[in-house]
């Protein structure tokens, strides 16, 4: 049983404070959704937990199984069990999916331990089949020339291969048509289980029809302003975000 704990987190990028005292605890097996209007700090939250060097934590902490990850480089956080599914995955010309995934898997092995290529490819192909990704993709450069749907499926493929303790999924539904969304959601649902905690970041309720969350949080102005179960998402869908903004303005005059 693992836990990811975000404690009173404040984050700035450049001079600007984006996350302003956010707290949240996720245990393995749980799916939390964070919803909120654009520009409210949702993606910043995902990036800072993953360890992007441009984002600075000014106070607060992020604890994985009780241990702060803030002093760790992004790669160490990933090896400790965090995974970020990017909203805009980087295109990396000349680096094949196969070599990239292999390096990521190898990075998790002890020094001197050799990767067994046969079982690696067997596992990779099984996950690709699950996500309906053509096996020819292994020879293609990472995300280069991929459609929006292909990029997102490739993110889920990496998540499936790397088996994180916690996955941060940043707007995984953006840019997907309904078929692609369904495939991605099926992939995530297949990975759901007692060993995985998920933080789903989304602007729209649509994704939550396919990946049913255990908890829904509303993020606004850099913090969580409301929490509930999946019915909160439906309420937001029906009423929009304006009432949240009004409530926030009344509480913070």
């Amino acid at each position: 049983m693992s836990s990811l704990e975000i404690k009173n987190l404040h984050v700035t990028i450049g001079e600007k404070e984006i996350v302003k005292g956010l707290s949240l605890q996720i245990s393995s097996g749980e799916v939390h959704a964070i919803m909120g209007p654009n520009g409210t700090g949702k993606s910043t939250l995902a990036m800072v937990i993953a360890g992007h060097p441009d984002y600075v934590v000014t106070s607060g902490d992020v604890l994985l199984d009780g241990k702060s990850v803030l002093a760790m480089e992004a790669d160490e956080r990933a090896r400790s069990g965090l995974f970020l599914a990017f909203q805009y995955p980087s295109e990396i010309p000349g680096v094949s999916i196969a070599n990239f995934m292999r390096a990521a898997v190898q990075a998790r092995m002890a020094e001197g331990e050799e990767l067994d290529a046969t079982s690696y490819y067997k596992r990779l192909y099984a996950k690709m089949d699950m996500l309906k990704i053509d096996r020819k993709f292994t020879a293609r450069s990472v995300n280069e020339g991929f459609s929006g749907g292909e990029k997102k499926r490739c993110e889920i493929l990496q998540m499936a291969m790397l088996e994180p303790k916690f996955a941060l999924m940043d707007e995984t539904d953006s840019g997907l048509d309904i078929d692609a969304l369904r495939i991605v959601a099926e992939g995530v649902n297949a990975l759901r289980g007692p060993g995985l905690g998920v933080l789903l970041i989304t602007h729209y309720q649509r994704l939550l029809n396919y990946i049913i969350p255990d908890f829904v949080h509303v993020m606004y102005a850099g913090r969580i302003v409301k929490s509930g179960d999946k019915s909160l998402a439906l309420e937001l869908e029906a009423k929009g975000y304006d009432w949240v903004k009004k409530e926030f303005a009344l509480a913070n005059p």
Binding site: A50, G51, H52, P53, E73, A74, D75, R77, A78, R79, F83, L84, F86, P89, S90, I92, P93, G94, V95, N99, F100, A103, A104, A107, R108, S141, Q158, L162
Partner: peptide
């Protein structure tokens, strides 16, 4: 950052990107 976020150490990430550049 993308490569590092997958657990790949910085030196290895730079090596992969260099090979990508050479490809």
């Amino acid at each position: 950052f993308y490569l590092q976020s997958r657990g790949i150490r910085k030196e290895m990430a730079d090596e992969l990107l260099t090979f990508g550049f050479f490809e």
